[in-house]
Design a protein around this nucleic acid. Structure first.
Length: 267
DNA sequence: AATGGGACCTGCGCGC
DNA sequence: TGCGCGCAGGTCCCAT
C-alpha cells in the first residue's frame, strides 16, 4: 500500500502525536503480523516503554523506545496506523498509551510485519536497502543505471537499487519523464536519466505535500485520506485519455505488477 | 543476471 | 442476488 510519501506522512504525524508518551499496554488481536520476537515477548518488551523518536527508512517505520529497543513497522500493502484508535474489525494490534488513547494497527491482508528489535540497523531489510532518491545526485543516479540491463520500471521498484519507490510512483515518474516503462535501464540517454531523476523526486515531493495517495487502504494517522490521487496521471487509468495527447492509457504487466503508460508519449 | 511465477492474505468491483 | 474471476501502494523465494 504505502510508498515513501505515505510512510513519510505517517511518520511526521506519529512524531507529533506520540513522542514522549508511554505505551502502557499492548493488545495483540492477530499474532500473524508479529514477526519477532513471540507475541508474548513483543507485548512485554513494549509495555512500560516511552516513545523517544520516530524514524522512516524507505517504507519502514521505526519507533525508538526508552528501553533501547525499537519497534519496526512495515505496512506492506494494507497496513494502517490510526490514532486515536477506533479498534475496528481490521485492528490486529492495539497500543494503549499514557494519554488514555489507543493507537490502532490495522491490516486487512495480514502482510504487514511488526518487530521489536535491539538494533534496527541490523535488520536484513535495512542492510540491503539502496539509497533513497533524495540521497543521491543526478550524476550518481545516472551511473547507477548504466550497468543495469533490466527494465527501468521494475528497477525503480527494486528496494536494493533505490529505496522508497513503489508501483504507483514508478508509473507516475516514468509518465512525467516520457519514458516507456519497459525500456532497458542502460538504454536511457543522459538527458532521459536526468529528467527521470528530476521527475521522480518531484513526484515524491508533491505527494508528500498532499499527504500521500489514498487509493484503497492508505489513510493518514487521523484516518483522513491523502489528497494526491487527483494528481495521478496514469496509475489505474487504463483506457482513459492521456492528459497530453488523448491516446488511451495502456495497462501491461511488468514484473507481475500493473503498469500504466501512454504508448504515444512514453518512448 | 534477469525474468516469471507463485506465495503470503482479505475483500472489492466487475461481468454473467 | 449470487458466484467466480481478476485485481490490489510490497516483498520474498524458487525455477528457468
Amino acid at each position: 500500500m504505502p510508498e515513501l510519501p505515505e510512510v513519510e506522512t505517517i511518520k511526521c504525524e506519529l512524531e507529533k502525536a506520540l513522542v514522549g508518551k508511554k505505551i502502557t499496554k499492548v493488545s495483540v488481536i492477530n499474532p500473524k503480523v508479529i514477526k519477532e520476537p513471540s507475541a508474548e515477548k513483543f507485548k512485554k518488551e513494549l509495555a512500560g516503554a516511552t516513545i523517544k523518536n520516530i524514524l522512516r527508512k524507505a517504507k519502514l517505520l521505526i519507533v525508538e523506545l526508552s528501553n533501547g529497543k525499537a519497534l519496526a513497522i512495515h505496512l506492506k500493502m494494507t497496513g494502517q496506523l490510526v490514532y486515536p484508535g477506533k479498534e475496528g474489525k481490521e485492528a490486529r494490534v492495539v497500543f494503549y498509551l499514557s494519554d488514555g488513547k489507543a493507537l490502532d494497527f490495522n491490516d486487512r491482508r495480514l502482510f504487514a510485519e511488526l518487530r521489536v528489535v535491539d538494533n534496527w540497523n541490523n535488520l536484513k531489510f535495512i542492510k540491503e536497502l539502496g539509497p533513497e532518491p533524495f540521497d543521491v545526485t543526478a550524476e550518481k543516479f545516472g551511473k547507477m543505471l548504466k550497468s543495469k540491463k533490466t527494465k527501468i520500471k521494475p528497477l525503480l521498484m527494486d528496494q536494493t537499487f533505490i529505496s522508497g519507490v513503489g508501483n504507483l510512483y514508478a508509473n507516475e515518474a516514468l509518465f512525467r519523464s516520457g519514458i516507456n516503462p519497459a525500456r532497458p535501464a542502460n538504454s536511457l540517454s543522459d538527458k532521459e536519466k536526468e529528467n527521470l531523476f528530476k521527475e521522480l523526486k518531484e513526484t515524491l515531493k508533491e505527494a508528500i505535500q498532499h499527504k500521500g495517495s489514498s487509493i484503497d487502504q492508505y489513510i493518514q494517522l487521523s484516518g483522513d485520506p491523502g489528497g494526491y490521487v487527483k494528481y495521478h496521471k496514469v496509475y489505474d487509468k487504463e483506457g482513459k485519455p492521456c492528459i497530453k495527447c488523448k491516446t488511451p492509457i495502456k495497462r501491461i504487466s511488468l514484473g507481475g505488477r500493473g503498469t500504466y503508460f501512454c504508448p504515444h508519449c512514453q518512448k
